[in-house]
């Protein structure tokens, strides 16, 4: 009899402890679920915030800022004497001769004349091609702008005189858009690191035009180019060139 009673108590105790265990487990799960929901809400809020942020205008492309700065710089002028003088750039203004740029000897006080970016040969890499729409202002009679392509076909830089790159190239310009007639003329010239200036004139006198390009738009993929009469540099047409 006692033995039976003891057994009963034992079973009851076991049962009670097992329900308590399961209760604790449920409560634990409840808390976890709760926390997860809480996190979900935070995530949701954050997502909403992100969406709102996305709707705001993006930060401007650094390239765009560069181009903007270049345009302002062009308007400000260099402060250097006309001719061969070129500004070193940097905080303290200084002008030096373009013959001394990129020749391996630091001539600017801040050494900017030997800056790898300034001395980049990117504009005249063989195969570089620049295209644009020419607005003819003289020399050719066209009412509408026509396509033009300038391509660098060879470049040569001498170790003993590094401030210029001697180049050859081809200029092709549309003469008749209806029949797609194109004039192609060989040109030769040089690139001036200091001025970021490219000049090419006809290889032989039987050809008509030369071309000059200023890489003054903040990068080496865009340039301000003109088609010129080689002798006088009289401007025949103008185009905004982009590398392609």
């Amino acid at each position: 009899m006692w033995y039976f009673l003891l057994l009963l108590i034992g079973v009851a105790a076991a049962q009670r402890s097992s329900t308590r265990e399961s209760f604790r487990e449920t409560r634990f799960q409840y808390l976890v679920t709760n926390q997860n929901l809480h996190l979900d809400k935070l995530e949701n809020d954050l997502h909403k915030l992100e969406e709102e942020f996305e709707e705001l205008s993006h930060e401007p492309d650094p390239k765009f800022i560069k181009q903007l700065k270049a345009r302002v710089r062009n308007l400000e002028g260099t402060g250097c004497a006309k001719g061969h003088q070129v500004p070193c750039g940097g905080d303290v203004p200084q002008c030096i001769n373009d013959l001394l740029f990129c020749d391996g000897h630091e001539d600017c006080k801040n050494g900017n004349d030997e800056d790898p970016k300034r001395c980049s040969e990117a504009p005249v890499h063989v195969g570089s091609s620049y295209t644009g729409l020419v607005t003819w202002t003289s020399c050719e009679q066209h009412d509408e702008p026509h396509n033009v392509v300038v391509t660098i076909t060879s470049s040569d830089r001498h170790d003993y005189f590094k401030s210029r790159v001697w180049i050859r190239g081809v200029i092709s310009y549309e003469v008749d858009e209806e029949h797609h007639l194109i004039n192609t003329e060989p040109v030769k010239g040089y690139y001036n690191f200091g001025k970021r200036y490219l000049v090419m004139i006809p290889d032989k006198s039987k050809y008509n035009y030369g071309v000059t390009c200023k890489f003054n738009l903040g990068d080496y993929d865009h340039a301000d180019c003109t088609i010129v009469i080689p002798a006088s540099l009289h401007e025949c047409g103008h185009f905004r060139a982009s590398r392609y």
Partner: peptide
């Protein structure tokens, strides 16, 4: 041959090119 600073720089460029060779 020009004048002033440009002349100095012209001379400088020539002599650098000579000594480089």
């Amino acid at each position: 041959y020009s004048h002033g600073h440009d002349r100095e720089d012209f001379a400088q460029a020539i002599w650098r090119a000579v000594f480089a060779q």
